[in-house]
Design a protein around this nucleic acid. Structure first.
Lengths: 181, 181
DNA sequence: CTGAATTTTCAGTAATTTGTGAAAATTGTA
DNA sequence: TACAATTTTCACAAATTACTGAAAATTCAG
């Protein structure tokens, strides 16, 4: 029997609503919320019961969460079921989210933009379109580089970077001096 | 008569498909593509014709794009229609996109997380949930700070920051030295 | 190997989201 | 101010996406 406290309940509902804005969907959002907020690994039946959704829906949801690399499978001795948990390090989750979203939101577009740049512009409006495509391409490529960088960063480093906050401006101002030493 | 070249056409279709992954939807993606890729400002009828969608759908789409601050309204002398264009600076578009997505994807959650933190944990599992909530909260708050920072940055500065790429690691390593001078 | 436990798939249905045309509201000019 | 041009709204229809139960496939203990 999988009981859920009122606090978790309201968080689960909220994550469900946000799920769709996050490129997932309601159920996926709810599922991940309950997994993240529960210390012990959960099996499909527990999730199904906690969220009052069908077992088959949970199965599909888990498949999706696996494809996002957001959950870890583990086995519990003496139990044949599969148990799932989220990484305990929140930074690892964030890193994964950024990288996976980039794969889904940027990579395909980057490839289409490159294709468009290879084409011969047929008139003035194509020429203008290509200028814009080039700008978008360059920007997206930079973002991609950053996410790759992020992927390889330790949680400590990532945290330090994010903590910089407004400090980043200051650092940018003096970066040249700094790197020349 | 609003003609669309094959190159623009294929880009429009791609942006349509990506639209949903980008928190918009197909039509919104297509609409923004045609606006961004066309040098001259467009009116609703032109968009409707170019994309073969109803005039009323365009009206709703424009409303949505306005709410995202992604388009600029302008008038053409002697013409009563409203014309729309995208910012010519691609960095401005990127900045807007980041800020607006934060508003929609992070802000509401941040508020829910804060609510959860105010509550008194009723048992051990709530205590664990609150730990996780705290971690998420702190992380999201840092991201929020960054986007605020971004919002105030000039395109030049933003571009320079993004160009850093892998340089960011190096800079982080020596940041303390740098700031102490 | 066998078969019970468990997970996955999938066709059909339910729910949600998106798009349309007609009508209402607004705008701006004569 | 009147009215034609233009934009917006909204009830309904169309399209898409998500969910379910039943059946198929897989897994693993004995």
């Amino acid at each position: 029997m999988m009981k859920i406290t009122p606090m978790t309940q309201s968080l689960v509902l909220h994550f469900g609503e946000m799920g769709s804005r996050w490129g997932l969907n309601r159920t996926l959002g709810q599922m991940y919320a309950v997994i993240v907020l529960t210390e012990a690994p959960l099996n499909a039946d527990q999730i199904s019961e906690a969220l009052q959704i069908s077992r088959s829906n949970v199965s599909m949801g888990l498949k999706e969460l696996k494809s996002w690399n957001l959950i870890k499978l583990q086995h519990i001795p003496g139990d044949r079921k599969e148990y799932f948990s989220a990484p305990s390090d929140i930074w690892e989750i964030a890193r994964t989210l950024v990288v996976e979203r980039r794969k889904r939101e940027l990579d395909p577009t980057l490839s289409t933009l490159r294709d468009a740049l290879m084409e011969q512009p047929s008139n003035e409006s194509d020429e203008y379109a290509q200028v814009r495509v080039q700008q978008m391409h360059d920007l997206m490529e930079m973002v991609t580089l950053w996410t790759t960088e992020m992927q390889g960063m330790s949680s400590e480093k990532l945290s330090a970077l994010l903590k910089l906050g407004e400090g980043i401006s200051k650092i940018l101002d003096v970066k040249d001096k700094l790197l020349l030493r």
